[in-house]
Design a protein around this nucleic acid. Structure first.
Lengths: 225, 225
DNA sequence: CCGTAAGCGGACCGCGGTCCAGTTTTGTTC
DNA sequence: GAACAAAACTGGACCGCGGTCCGCTTACGG
């Protein structure tokens, strides 16, 4: 089963971009196909992303100031905003690649994450995959968090949601899968990961096995049964 | 079973305040007892909170600008920050009363929320209680959300966590209750409530029954079984 | 009454975000 | 391939707000 999801890499209210894979079956977001930038615009975009990445490497996420990025990319401040909407947009664009990677993995990668394995197995594998991916570059993930109102509208997040809903529907068809999916995803929230691992000192493995246990409980596969 | 929890109403890294009820058994946060403000400071604090509330009523949460609040309270800007640490602190102070109310309800109120009912019943009742409380003044709750790193350190949040952990321990002693509790709470996050009700049009009742279903699944009380 | 710690307030700073006059690119027409 | 008009893009001046700082004032205990 395949569905196309748009991933952000630009403009204000998450105006999505490239469909990730074949056969569009479900479009998250709204917008028209990718705008296809003008040559100079594309060049500047690349330079900005590059500059941002460099700044992070040197001064951490906090060092990524819109002005600094603009300066480092030899570009006007206005250009940064035009291209990425706001700081969050820029930061998320930096995560875009990894978003797509993950998405490709669970949409078309090898089992148990990708298609081929039974839904429950896929769901079990899903948590750790997200977990470990978020754990690297966690600080960037945190900084890229948009204001609460938009947390869930981001295309990449929507993609996760839809995927989980789809799996859940196959496992527990009679449940309120929309709600259940959000709850499961909430337990993978970067902020929560940060809290668990960095402030409470839990190892990532514990979170991973916690996810599996959670999935089992929620789907009625029951742990220790 | 009783435990005291400190509730915020002031200063930077959530320097807690009044223990809520008798027999301190568990202190969330760190600080010494409440500092007991000087007379003029207390007066100004009240005036600030009052001014803030008025501003919200008139111009919505967005109208609550630190300068505006200071001006409306006839007080210097610095004073606002000294008292509340930052904007988030001020906003949270506005929610403090309702926080304490809720806490009192599940710590010492009548069953099924309060002690007296069996743990599972209390847990079932807990979700809707939080849900309905957050739903009113939802915009304030959202605006009061601190940066992701601090979301879970706020005393009021800690109090909820501890309570849920305690209930869970009685219901599913062999599970990883810490993790489970956070997951359950995550499903009650104001941002999530906002998304569900305002952006996806789900009625609050659906969330409430969703909580109960979730609790049943997680605890193995199983729905439809 | 006095010493001192607590509180006060407003000038100041940096950053995110907006705006718009001017420039560059692109596609079109002869 | 030259000229041209519309569209897209650019950059930096500008704004408002959150947050800091520090010299002055005020409340309070002795």
């Amino acid at each position: 089963m395949l569905y196309a999801v748009f991933m952000s890499s630009a403009l204000p209210p998450f105006p999505p971009q490239k469909p990730l894979d074949v056969s569009p079956l479900l479009e998250v977001g709204t917008a028209p196909g990718e705008p296809c930038l003008r040559a100079d615009a594309a060049r500047n975009r690349a330079r900005l992303l590059d500059a941002a990445a460099r700044l992070i490497a040197e001064h951490g996420v906090a060092g990524v100031t819109m002005e600094a990025v603009a300066a480092a990319a030899q570009v006007g401040k206005g250009t940064v905003f035009r291209r990425f909407g706001d700081r969050t947009g820029l930061l998320m664009a930096l995560l875009d690649h990894s978003d797509r990677q993950l998405q490709a993995d669970f949409l078309g990668g090898p089992p148990p994450l990708g298609p081929g394995a039974p839904p429950l197995e896929r769901l079990r594998a899903f948590g750790p995959a997200v977990l470990y991916r978020s754990a690297e570059r966690l600080d960037l993930q945190l900084a890229a968090q948009p204001e609460p109102t938009r947390r869930f509208s981001h295309p990449a997040v929507q993609a996760l949601r839809i995927h989980v809903v789809m799996l859940l529907r196959q496992i527990v068809p009679h449940a309120d899968c929309e709600l259940l999916a959000q709850t499961l995803l909430a337990s993978l929230d970067p902020a929560l990961i940060h809290y668990h691992t960095r402030q409470r000192g839990m190892p990532l493995e514990r979170l991973a096995t916690g996810w599996i246990d959670l999935v089992d409980r929620v789907t009625g596969a029951g742990p220790h049964r």
